[in-house]
Every structure is written in C-alpha cells, then in structure tokens.
Design a protein around this nucleic acid. Sequence first.
DNA 1: AATAACTTGGTGACAAAGTCACAGATTACC
DNA 2: GGTAATCTGTGACTTTGTCACCAAGTTATT
Lengths: 219, 219
Amino acid sequence: MQKDQIAEVLTRFPSLAELTSEEWQEEGISITTVPANFTIDEGEFLENAPLILDGLVRIFKLSSDGREVTLYRLTAGECCPLIASSILGETVYEASACVEKPSLVLNVPTKIYKKWIEKHQDFRQYIFQSFARRLIIMSNLIDDINFKSIRVRISEYLIEHTSAENDTLAITHDLLAIELGTAREVISRTLKKMEKEGLLRVARGQITDIKRSRLPTDE
Amino acid sequence: MQKDQIAEVLTRFPSLAELTSEEWQEEGISITTVPANFTIDEGEFLENAPLILDGLVRIFKLSSDGREVTLYRLTAGECCPLIASSILGETVYEASACVEKPSLVLNVPTKIYKKWIEKHQDFRQYIFQSFARRLIIMSNLIDDINFKSIRVRISEYLIEHTSAENDTLAITHDLLAIELGTAREVISRTLKKMEKEGLLRVARGQITDIKRSRLPTDE
DNA sequence: AATAACTTGGTGACAAAGTCACAGATTACC
DNA sequence: GGTAATCTGTGACTTTGTCACCAAGTTATT
C-alpha cells in the first residue's frame, strides 16, 4: 500500500488512523476495483474482508424459488457486518452480495482484519456501531414487512430516494418489487392507483412528478 | 459479588473467566431476579447491560397499532446484541423486552461492560459471535416472512418446539400468531385444516399428536 | 431497414393471507 | 353457581401474491 492510497482510505475510514505504517505494509492488503454485477454467493468462504471505498453493493438473500430480499446496501465508508460476523464468528457467509455500481474496495485478509479489531479501539468501535445500525435497520425492516401496507412502503421508498429538488426516480417496477420483496404486478397496480389519485406519474422506467409531501407514511 | 456467585456466572459465561477479582468487585455489578412480565419498553435508556443467567426473555418490536413481532428470545448464557449495540453505539434501545419466565440476571453497568469488552478478548469474541448469530437469525426471519407459507412456518415452529419423545405443544392460537407475526384467525384456520389432514390435533390451549415427520417444511 | 429477441408494463382470474365483527365454549375466580 | 375473562370458530370482505398471457417499446443482428 502506498502513501496516497492510505490517505484515500483514511478519508473514508477515519477509524483506521491509528494503524502504523508497518501494519499497512502487511502481505495481502490491496485496493481493487470491482465491476458491476460481480457477485458473491451465499455460503462462500471469504479470505478477505472488503471495506467499501466507493460504489454501491447490495446484500440480499435468495429464497429456494429464486426470489430475493434486499437486506441492505453498502456505500463508501461502510463495511458488511454479516461479513464481519462471519469472520469473527468463523462461520460461512449467509447472504449474497452483488455490486450495483462499479466499486472500489479495500481488501483486508481476514487474519489481519481480526488483528486490527483486537488492537485498535477506534476501528473496533466503528465495527460495533455498524453492527448496531444493521440490527436496528433489519428489525425495522421486519417491522415494515409485517405491519405496513405496500402503498406506504412504496411511498417511503420514493421519499427516501428523491428530494425536494428532484421529484423523479428512475426505476422499473420489477426492480422496485425486488427492493421491497414483493411482486411486480403488485407494484404496477399500486403505482397506477396512486397515479389516478394524482400522487405521481408513471412512465416507462421511471416515476415522475412525485408529490413527496402528499404520500402516505402511515396506515 | 461473592465467590460462589462469580462461580455461578462463570458456568453460564465462561468467556468471563479472564476477569480479575478486583474487576468483580467494581461498584454496581449485581445479580437480580426479575419476575415474569417485567418489561423494558422501546426507547428506554439503559444503565445496565443484562446477561441472562437463567430464565427466558422475549425481545420484540411493537407496531404503531399495537401488534408485535418477536425478534428473538434470550435464555441462560445469552446477552441481547441489540442492547450491546445500543450501549456500544451509544444509541437508544430500539426494541422491547419482556420477561417470560422469572429470570436471573447479571447486571453490569454500561461503563464496566464497555471496559470488559475492550480489555478481554474472550468476552469480546463472545459478544461478536452473538452479534453474528443474531444477524443471521434475523435475516433468516426476513426470508421466512417473505417466502414461506404460514403452513410451513407453523410446521417449522412445531418441529422446533417438540421432540421425538414429546409430540405435544402447549400454546394458544393467539400466542402462536404473535410468535409468527400474523393474525390469530389465520392460525386457527390453518391448524384446523392440518387437523383434517391428520397432521395434528387441536385442543384448547394445546396442540397434540403432532406428526413431526409428516409436516411440510418447504413450499 | 427488417427481423428477432429481450424488456417493460398491463390485465384478468384466482389463491393465500390479513381484517373485522361477531358468537360460542371453556375456564378462572369470587 | 354466576360472572368475567380467555380461547376458539366462522363468514364476509380487503389486500397482497401468483399465474398465464399479451402488447408495446427497445436493442441487437443481419
């Protein structure tokens, strides 16, 4: 690892600032670019812990009949707690990962990763906090699936992925269905109803004119 | 903390064996018995991290309209990773806990708990592994909710809570519904259908004659 | 430019699950 | 023994999910 590379990593992972230059020189640490659609399948054993420097990675579960639920996504400055836990708990990785946008990844061999966590408090705390966040996000997801109507779940997704300046979202019904763990037809029908009520407009591959303030956020 | 108390804790939490006798004498560490139905509500701030020595505690989420999903249960030798994460990540506790069977709990003030995790590798590893287990269990739960029929989910619950020797389970439809995050009527109807097929027999407050080997475990 | 292959979205019929409003049945308890 | 609380059953209805298929748009191929 070179000086400028290390500096770049530190902008994304300030919790690694404690590391000595000797530790950065250990065998096997590297930065790689991973192309879109690169996939790690459930059950694989991992030699490296990936820390995401840039890009977008989706972590999901596959069901026996080929459908998917998105568990969460990782972006710059994040690590996958399921990977961390599989490394620290020495179990196989029980989910799949798929690179959605070409990503820049810091690969840390599992042994070195463990050493870092044991030695460096800042990094350890960072890892713990990402566990915390994920557990909470996942329990909220369970909550949503159990108790919220699709209409509300679609609305919340739209609100989260648009802004006051941008009332358009480019996504197909199919993808949105996978996002929410439901079926495309359900999305199509619900969006159509919402269009009739003037909450948004549907076009091929995108949803426009999203009236964020009028979308329902509760039952 | 007295010698015999410490010894008892160690049988449940061998990962605490490294602690010195000075550490055991720190202010605030105590063992308490918690009666059934004692509850910690979502959002409360915790002063102590509880480690379960004996009993049964249910961790669940409440929805806005008063329904519940069980996230998981804790028994002897376990700790609540959501509590751990809220302490380590310094956030509020985003779930509720309810004591189901009178429980014996080791209370560790959060500051001391943090110190233990930083100082003692064995305990740290134990905590990490419990994070790992929970993340995996919760992602499997999401999987189940999304992809499995109620019939299968009921079957899996029955198989898990009976044995080759014991083909009876004492539980009401209402409780089973809360367990699985669904409605009582759905449970009643499904159980009745399964009874007609000779897979089990329903009685008030219990399910008997459970034919474990014939219950469906896939779609 | 013509064709084929693929993507995206629409529809109707149906099944599975959840909701609501009750009504009996059984048990607990004073 | 009577009253209240708990547990279960049922029918009507809504929402969500599934299946089969079609139509329009897009991209690739020649």
